[in-house]
């Protein structure tokens, strides 16, 4: 199980990477941490002509506060960096919790946010987090720089709106509710989730003023359960609206049957994960 032959180019800045991507018209792949790409190469599921190494580009590794309270996290920031980042831990505590579910230590030490987003695996944590956090993804291509909203970014399983010549520069996170819930269930520690849900809640005067619910592993892309979010606003979390949110999550998801779980079981789990995440977030919001 050895990778097929390819050329290798180490880019020293994003522009070089974009130029190289453009020159190879779809036959080049970017590699940063390589934690999703390398298994595919080893299995020879991909046979690129050129591998463009962006792992040494310093500008992709920033974690900084941008304008209007946004945080900008470079595409080359690793899962591990998020786990140990205090500033992000304070502003988006859900990130840290979610990162502990990303595979295993050695994978988190290499894998990057940009890689995870570009790979677009609907069972992975970052695509769901991006959607949940209303993130914008900053990309650079030959036609220049653009921002893509997370809800427009994920088009299907392993399919994003990135063009062949585009590279992710950063993910921009606007301020978000701090109270969070995050649950996923997997066959073993670190495995891709059978189903998972993330919840963010903002409360005012003891009532939910903003609710966000997103699902992972339950369809071709991560899923926001907008219906349920709207219905929770202005209320306490109670057994009725909790049950309604669970039902909305089950209705919103379109999971596949695979070796590890049937679609029917995953739908059931969508409700369970949503309910548990709501409970956790509500518990935090009112304490």
């Amino acid at each position: 199980m050895k990778p097929p032959p390819f050329e290798y180019f180490r880019a020293s800045n994003p522009e070089e990477a974009v130029a190289a991507l453009g020159a190879h018209g779809g036959n080049a792949k970017l590699i940063a941490g390589g934690q999703s790409l390398m298994p595919m190469l080893n299995f020879r599921l991909l046979e690129p002509e050129l591998l463009i190494d962006i792992s040494k580009i310093a500008s992709l590794k920033r974690i900084e506060k941008g304008s209007s309270g946004r945080w900008v996290i470079g595409a080359g920031v690793r899962h591990r960096d998020i786990l140990v980042s205090e500033v992000l831990g304070n502003s988006y505590p859900i990130l840290r919790a979610a990162m502990t579910h990303v595979a295993h230590v050695a994978i988190r030490n290499r894998g990057t946010i940009g890689g995870s987003l570009a790979h677009g695996d609907p069972a992975a944590e970052w695509p769901m987090l991006a959607l949940l956090l209303d993130a914008e993804i900053e990309v650079l291509g030959r036609s220049g720089q653009r921002m893509i909203e997370a809800k427009d970014f994920f088009l299907g399983a392993l399919h994003t709106s990135l063009s062949e010549d585009e590279i992710i520069l950063a993910i921009h996170l606007p301020p978000a509710p701090v109270a969070w819930g995050f649950f996923e269930t997997a066959r073993r520690a670190g495995d891709f989730a059978l189903a998972g849900a993330g919840v963010l809640l903002e409360t005012q005067n003891g009532k939910i003023s903003e609710a966000r619910i997103a699902l992972l592993g339950l369809g071709e892309t991560p899923i926001r359960v907008y219906d349920a979010e709207a219905k929770l606003e202005g209320e306490n979390l109670n057994s009725t609206n909790r049950a309604a949110a669970m039902e909305a999550a089950k209705a919103a998801c379109q999971p596949m049957t695979d070796l590890h779980a049937s679609a029917e079981f995953r739908v059931h789990l969508a409700g369970i994960m949503t309910g548990r995440s709501l409970d956790a977030a509500w518990g935090q919001a009112i304490c």
Partner: peptide, 11 residues
């Protein structure tokens, strides 16, 4: 080994 599951220390 993603699909044939053997127990890890956590299980």
């Amino acid at each position: 080994l993603v699909d044939y599951l053997v127990p890890s220390a956590a299980e």
